[in-house]
Amino acid sequence: MRPMNPENTVIDIDNLVRRFGSADAVNGLSLRVQLGRCYGFFGRNGAGKTTTIKCLLNLLRPTSGRVKVFGLDPARDEVAVKSRLAYVPDAVAFYPWMTVRGTLDYFASFRERWNQRTEAALVDQFRLDLRQKTSHLSKGQRTQLALIAAICPEPELLVLDEPTSGLDPIVRREFIQTVIGAYQDGDPGRRTVFVSTHLISEFEGLIDEFTIIEHGREVLTLEADAARARYQKIYAHFSDEPGTLDLGGAHVFRQRGRDVEVVVNGDSADVMERLRLRSPETLTTEALTLEEIFVTTLQPGGAMV
C-alpha cells in the first residue's frame, strides 16, 4: 500500500458494518479513495455496494465502523459533506410535471455554483429537449438529465451508483465517458469519481483504481494498470495432448484437447517456464481485462487473490 496523505483522502471507510436484522449487508469493509481518482467499486448485485454508498451519504447509519468523506463525518457534518458532492442513484426520479429546463433550475437552486456552459454543452450533445416534461423522458434520457444535474454544480466528489445499468448498451458507454470527461475537465486533479457497477467493461479505460466486494467485504483492491499487469491469461497449444500439467498451483482455466488456458496472478514467468518445458507449439500471454479479473476473482474455488 502507498503511504496515504489524510488531506488527500476523499473517502475513508474503515471496518464498516451495516446490518439489516440478522443479515450483514456490509461486513467489515475498508477502503480509501484518493483525491482526483476515478475509483471503481465493483461487486455483484447484492454485494453491498448500494448500502456502502448510502452510509457515505448518511442515508443509512453504520452499525459499526467509521466512514469519512472529505475527512468529515457524514452524519455530524451532513450539510458540509453533501454540499461538496453529487450523487446519482441507480433509479432516478424527477417531478413528472416539471420540464427538463424546470428540473435543471430546481436542482441549481440548491447549489452555490452551477456551470451553465457545461449544462448547455451536455444538453446539446445529448439532444435533450428543454421543454419536454420529465415524465416523457426515456430511461436513458432520465439518466442523462441526472448526470448533467450532478456535474453542473462542480462538486468535488461525484458518486455514481450503477449509472449505466438498464440502459441501451451502445449509448451508455458513450455518455458515461462524456460526462466523466466534462466533470474532470473543470479542475483536473481535484475531481474525484466513485462509481459502483457490475457492468465493468464499460469502465475499462476510465478506472484508475478499484475495489471488488463480495458479501460485504473487500476481496481485491488494485490500481487498474497494476491489475492488468498481474492478472494474465496464458494460452498454450501442444502437438499432443499434454495430460496433467504441474503448474505450481496456478489455476487451469480451460483444458481442451491440445489447448490449455491458464490464468495467473503475478507469477506468469514461472508458469510460462513450466509450460515451456513441455514444448508447446505456441505459447502466448495476454492481460485480463478488469471485467475478466472481476469474474476470475469471484469464481467459486478460483482462489486467485
Binding site: 482526483g36 481518482r37 476515478c38 458507454r173 465517458q177 462524456t178 466523466i180 470527461g181 474532470q184 475537465d185 483536473p188 475499462e204 479505460g205 476510465l206 478506472i207 484508475d208
Partner: peptide, 17 residues
C-alpha cells in the same frame, strides 16, 4: 488536447495527463 483525446481513446483524463 487532453479531454478530446481521453474521450476518443475511452480512457480517463488522468491517463492522458
Amino acid at each position: 488536447s487532453i479531454r478530446p483525446l481521453a474521450e476518443e481513446l475511452r480512457v480517463n483524463r488522468n491517463t492522458v495527463a
